[in-house]
Every structure is written in C-alpha cells, then in structure tokens.
Simulated assay, not measured.
Amino acid sequence: MQQDFGKVAVLFGGNSAERDVSLASGNAILTALISQGINAVGIDPKTDDISLLKKLGFDRVFIALHGRGGEDGVIQGFLTTLDIPFTGCGVMSSAIAMDKSKTKQIWQSMQLPTADYQLIVKESFDESQCAAILARLSGTVMVKPINEGSSIGMAKANNEQQLIAALNNAFTYDDKVLVEAWITGKEFTVSMLNGQTLPAIRMQTKNEFYDYQAKYQSTDTQYFCPCGLEDDKLAELNRLAIEAFNAIGCRGWGRVDFMLDEHEQWYLLEVNTVPGMTTSSLVPKAAKQAGYSFEQLVVEILKQTL
C-alpha cells in the first residue's frame, strides 16, 4: 500500500474559521493512514510552506482543510498547478459548493428542491429592508454567511431586531449573507463515496437547529443510522443526493445535507466537499454503517488520487 501511494501530505489546519475542526479531522486522517503503513506527513498551511510540496517529494495530497482556502477551490487550483493529485472535488465544483447562493441557483435551474431565499450584500444592506425580507420569506428565516461551514455565523430570526442582529453577526464572517426561509422538520445528511450514497443519517438536537455546538460540543445530539425512512422515501433522498452532488460537478467524496419538512417535502441545504472527519463526524458514521472502518474509509478516499 505504501508503494501504491508514495509520499502523502495531509493538509489540515489552515487559517479559516474552521481551523480547530480541520486540525481534529487532519490528525484523525493522519493517524489512520500511518496505521495502514502509508508514508503520510501532516502539513499545516498556516505554519508550513506548501510551495515546497513538490520539492519535498510528495506524490499526492489528502485535503482535510475545512472552510476558506481548503474547500473553495484555492488549494485545489494550487495543487493542480503543481500537478499533484488530491482527494475530493476539483477547482470549479469546490468554488461553487462553497458559495451557498451559487449552489442554490444551480439547483433551482435543475428544478431541485431548495428553500426560498434572498442574498444580502453588506455594502448595500439597509436595516429598513428587514421587514420586507421577513414578509417575503414567511416570517421566520435562517441567516447564513455565504462562504462559511460548520454552521459558523448562522442564526434563526423571526422579527426585525433578530434579523438585524443576525445579519450584522454574519457580516463579521462574510460580505454576502444568505437569508433563507425557515424549514420546520427533520434534518438528514447523505454521504457520497465514489459516486454512490452511503447510509443516510438523521440528526436530532435539542438546539433550535443543528448548529456548531450541536455538531462538535454537545453530548445530547442524536444520530440515527439507519435513518428510519420508509424505502420509497429513502430512495427519493438518495436520488436527490446524487443529482445535487452531480449538478455541482462534485467527485470523489462529500456530503449533501437536507431538511424534510412537516409535509414530507425534501429541501436541499448545501454540499460539503471536504466534510469533517472527526470522531463525531457524519461521514465516518455513515461509512461504519456500510461496513467501512475509519481506516478503510480514509484509504478508500485516498485511492481516488491514483
């Protein structure tokens, strides 16, 4: 196996708001690769000179960078220029998936279900617009920075003052913010591996939504896998996941997030092109249900670079 892969760089850490999660993911991946006899080395772009990857003899890269610089096409473009194979999506699909508004526009053009929304730009934002925004989006909304992950900067709002506060907070992370109609229902995720879906997971939290605290800090968050859907509804979910993933041009591995509302209607939320790989992360949970150990999953993802 070591001969097949050569020298592998695991890129993790970085400078994004998701640095801590990336460090946890990268360390887990690095440990798993080394346990399988693979010559893997951890590289942190915040402290290490990644321009030396080629000179240092790295044959391929496992990208474990979350957020900006890791999921937005930047590192993918850099590695493409160096002609070093890497895990996951390419430049364009990474950039599109990182931008929630661009992702939704493509899905809408293909008649894939996604919630109504409005894009708010910081430099032209006027607080007097908030009443009209709420009215157009049925009174309750979710506020999301366009280019952040791990639910960073997200908040629910159901009145003008809450929306103003949520937008101003989101603007500290991004100059563009998505205001999306609130969906009441259950949250699901479908992990993708080599063009196929892994077993779907339903997440349940006592929080208002599956936020950063529920994902990484809470001991009360529940994960159901199998997810409990009837066969026809599960088939519909898997079909939508594949269509949504392919619509963005994604490849290799990733994760597609959904809501199922009170009327049994699916809504696509977003695509994650470098999902978390911590001990509490969703892709390893789905892979385990499909029969993969964490080590097997990591090696399977790395095989995509051969």
Score class of each variant (00 low, 15 high):
residue 195 G to T: 03
residue 201 I to G: 09
residue 130 C to S: 10
residue 232 D to T: 15
residue 202 R to Q: 15
residue 72 D to S: 10
residue 174 D to W: 07
residue 135 A to P: 00
residue 222 Q to A: 13
residue 133 I to Q: 08
residue 180 E to R: 13
residue 288 K to Q: 15
residue 300 E to P: 01
residue 214 A to M: 04
residue 51 S to K: 11
residue 114 T to F: 01
residue 182 W to R: 03
residue 128 S to T: 14
residue 242 I to M: 05
residue 26 G to F: 09
residue 243 E to Q: 15
residue 148 E to Y: 00
residue 291 G to N: 08
residue 11 L to G: 11
residue 287 A to H: 12
residue 306 L to T: 14
residue 113 P to W: 09
residue 273 T to L: 03
residue 200 A to I: 06
residue 85 P to Q: 12
residue 283 V to T: 15
residue 267 Y to T: 09
residue 239 R to C: 10
residue 207 N to P: 00
residue 32 A to P: 04
residue 7 K to G: 04
residue 158 N to V: 02
residue 282 L to N: 09
residue 123 E to K: 14
residue 261 D to G: 08
residue 198 L to W: 00
residue 268 L to T: 10
residue 301 I to Y: 07
residue 40 A to D: 01
residue 85 P to Y: 13
residue 283 V to Y: 02
residue 60 R to C: 12
residue 67 G to D: 04
residue 114 T to K: 02
residue 28 A to I: 03
residue 173 Y to W: 09
residue 105 Q to S: 13
residue 89 C to K: 00
residue 196 Q to G: 01
residue 285 K to Y: 02
residue 139 G to V: 01
residue 229 L to S: 07
residue 205 T to E: 00
residue 197 T to G: 05
residue 157 A to Q: 09
residue 97 A to P: 06
residue 82 L to K: 15
residue 22 S to E: 03
residue 191 S to H: 01
residue 145 P to A: 11
residue 180 E to M: 13
residue 236 E to L: 11
residue 269 L to S: 12
residue 5 F to M: 11
residue 70 G to P: 13
residue 254 G to Y: 12
residue 140 T to M: 11
residue 117 Y to P: 02
residue 104 K to P: 01
residue 112 L to K: 05
residue 215 K to W: 03
residue 114 T to N: 08
residue 20 D to T: 02
residue 123 E to M: 01
residue 192 M to G: 04
residue 3 Q to E: 14
residue 70 G to S: 08
residue 263 H to M: 03
residue 101 S to G: 00
residue 56 L to G: 03
residue 6 G to T: 07
residue 118 Q to S: 04
residue 215 K to R: 13
residue 277 M to W: 07
residue 213 Q to I: 03
residue 118 Q to L: 12
residue 92 M to V: 14
residue 216 Y to N: 10
residue 198 L to H: 04
residue 162 Q to N: 03
residue 296 Q to V: 00
residue 84 I to H: 12
residue 209 F to E: 11
residue 84 I to R: 13
residue 60 R to L: 11
residue 92 M to R: 11
residue 14 G to Q: 05
residue 212 Y to N: 09
residue 166 A to S: 14
residue 298 V to Y: 04
residue 16 S to L: 07
residue 11 L to A: 10
residue 26 G to Y: 05
residue 190 V to L: 05
residue 249 G to L: 03
residue 11 L to Q: 07
residue 78 F to H: 09
residue 175 D to T: 13
residue 124 S to K: 12
residue 93 S to L: 08
residue 150 S to C: 05
residue 250 C to L: 06
residue 224 F to G: 09
residue 183 I to Y: 06
residue 184 T to G: 08
residue 10 V to I: 14
residue 259 M to E: 09
residue 218 S to L: 03
residue 79 L to V: 10
residue 268 L to P: 05
residue 122 K to H: 12
residue 3 Q to M: 07
residue 255 R to T: 01
residue 20 D to K: 05
residue 106 I to Y: 04
residue 270 E to D: 13
residue 84 I to G: 06
residue 285 K to H: 00
residue 25 S to W: 08
residue 177 V to W: 07
residue 216 Y to E: 06
residue 261 D to T: 09
residue 280 S to T: 14
residue 194 N to F: 01
